[in-house]
Computed example of a mutant assay.
Amino acid sequence: MRASRQLSVAVACPGEAWPHPDWPARDDPYVERAVLLSEPFRIPESADVVVLRSAEPLRYFRELVTGTTPAIVISPCRAAETVIEVFRGGAGYLVEGDYCACMLSSAVVGASVGHTYLSPAACAALREGVRRQSAAGEATERLRGLLSPRERQIMDLLSTGLGAQAIGLRLRLSEKTVRNNLSNIYAKLDARGSTDAVLRWLGAADGGGQRALAR
């Protein structure tokens, strides 16, 4: 999905260097500027998205990424527990060495419209962590049984980090059709949005999806 205007990004790199000094490019159609913040970090009201770059993202996550500004974490850490915690907090996650500048711009645009973007390695860590941690396998399967075969296809793709447009291309559906399906999925799973739905689908949500099953 294209942003309706070019975006402003606030960048926080506690104790570390920002690896993309030439980003955004002058011809970037999505991101207008990236402002490197100094400590103590204060997110400017003009920022559309905040990016936290840290080897220990959870150390700074609650301070920087729990406000109303959408967020993305960039980190060399690919520990499943860290990725899950960040994802539960509603932020995207890009593993260093696992993305390019174009993907960073796409992640920023996605965050600005409510999509939680994960790089491939972050997706893999999330799914592996859920398989290890989930103690609600039966409940999760019952939850998945609430969805139609098409809805299950969409959730499989959503849980790999794809947005509605990309899912539509994969399944040869219009973006509008995918979004209509997602609205139905959220209602069935009793999910607040895409992040919550993916966590419930994977069995990583608090309560393992019991809220939806109890209705």
Rank of each mutant, 00 (worst) to 15 (best):
I185Q: 01
R152I: 12
E141P: 03
E81V: 14
A10G: 09
S194Q: 15
M103V: 05
G110N: 08
A10P: 05
A47S: 07
Q165M: 14
A166N: 05
E32H: 15
R88P: 02
Y93S: 00
Y93K: 02
A10D: 06
R170T: 12
G209P: 01
E85M: 08
D196H: 12
G137E: 06
A47W: 00
P14W: 10
D22M: 07
T66S: 14
T195Q: 14
R131E: 11
G90S: 07
A47Q: 00
G15W: 09
L157P: 07
P120H: 03
R144F: 06
A166S: 12
N180V: 13
T140M: 09
A197S: 05
T160V: 15
A101T: 11
V50F: 02
S183F: 15
L52E: 02
E39A: 15
I84F: 01
R33G: 06
V108I: 12
S38N: 15
V35R: 11
W23I: 02
V73L: 06
A17V: 14
L58G: 00
E56N: 08
V49Q: 14
R215Y: 13
R170F: 14
H115S: 10
L182E: 14
L162V: 03
R26Y: 06
V31I: 09
L37D: 08
G90Q: 07
E39Y: 05
L182I: 03
G114V: 10
K176G: 11
A124Q: 05
V108F: 07
G145T: 01
A187R: 15
G89M: 08
T66R: 14
W23M: 01
A204K: 01
I43L: 14
L104S: 01
D196Y: 08
R215S: 10
G193R: 09
D190G: 07
S134F: 07
I185G: 02
V178H: 04
P120W: 00
N180M: 15
D190K: 06
V130Y: 02
T160Y: 13
E81Q: 13
T195N: 10
R152K: 14
G209I: 06
L58K: 02
T68F: 10
C13F: 01
E45R: 15
P76A: 07
L147S: 01
